[in-house]
Design a protein around this nucleic acid. Structure first.
Lengths: 163, 163
DNA sequence: CCATATCGTTGGTTACGCCAACGTTGGCTC
DNA sequence: GAGCCAACGTTGGCGTAACCAACGATATGG
């Protein structure tokens, strides 16, 4: 009796927003477990990656790149600086800013996390072939870009931002 | 200067798990705002929908259907019962259980939420045509189903079947 | 009868994504 | 130079989703 009692209602199964959320749940669970092997979280990886790809930057700039809030950025930088994966130094040219730079150890850690993450992606996307994977990332990219434009648009002039 | 400072690092942009998460963020933001118009949250909709589609059921069964944890289910049922959208009654045949039934007002509320959600989906999927939407839901469904099978399957134990 | 398991419930925890406010600093305009 | 506004880092907080552990009460099956 009650076979397949775990089947969600039709309404939920057909809801793209929920489907997306469920997929994200799965993805995050897999990724979090992978990163946890190295004692890292998603924010850590994002920050290391941004730091490596864009070179020394202020916390605010890194926040804009990664989507991490300024307040959360503080804690994340604290974590990584304590572990000597990043360095935080005052900017002599603008004393409001901290300059964040990735260290050699940070690059090594990043490379390690890259490997863990690659395996996690493989896990996550297991049921899809190469073509399907490309299609999926394409569709998701279009969605995300569209909504980022719509919202990030109010970031125009020299003033009136973040406000 | 610093045009497009909001561009995420390549590593993050190419990461399917992150893409999925970003899309879910967008979807949830849109959906949450829509549901908030009716003073509802996602759990509320999920529970009403399950309650309507499967008829009177125990809290645990509804939890299995919706993926809502038993502990969270208590609070969600409380919310909806207070607003007379659900009824909670002890099961005379199994005194461990509560039987949850949707009320007439609950059905009306559900219909209302259905409309709000339909508009929200439209918003979320705006950049995609009908074919792309079908492709997306298909791919996401395959992903979610795959991982649900993988995880829900390993719950065999001595008593098998749901525990 | 006894072990096991399920049910509802209470009471946590984690991380993520946010927002508000503050003091400091920089730039711009008078 | 004075004043004004914006940006920066930081602190502190919020809400929610998604979990887990444990409990007493009840069913079930050996």
């Amino acid at each position: 009796m009650d076979i397949e009692e775990g089947t969600p209602p039709q309404r939920l199964r057909a809801l793209p927003s929920r489907l997306t959320n469920q997929a994200a749940l799965v993805a995050n669970r897999i990724v979090d477990r992978a990163l946890a092997e190295a004692g890292a979280r998603r924010y850590h990886y994002a920050l290391l990656a941004a730091s490596e790809e864009y070179g020394p930057s202020s916390q605010a700039a890194l926040g804009r790149r990664t989507g991490i809030d300024r307040s959360d950025m503080v804690a994340t930088v604290n974590d990584l600086a304590e572990r000597r994966l990043l360095e935080r130094a005052p900017d002599p040219e603008d004393r409001r800013r901290n300059i964040i730079s990735i260290t050699a150890a940070g690059r090594r850690e990043l490379a390690h996390l890259d490997e863990l993450l690659a395996a996690a992606q493989e896990d996550f996307l297991a049921p899809l072939g190469a073509a399907d994977r490309r299609t999926l990332t394409d569709l998701l990219t279009r969605l995300v870009d569209h909504h980022r434009a719509e919202q990030g648009w109010t970031t125009p002039g020299p003033a009136s931002r973040t406000g």
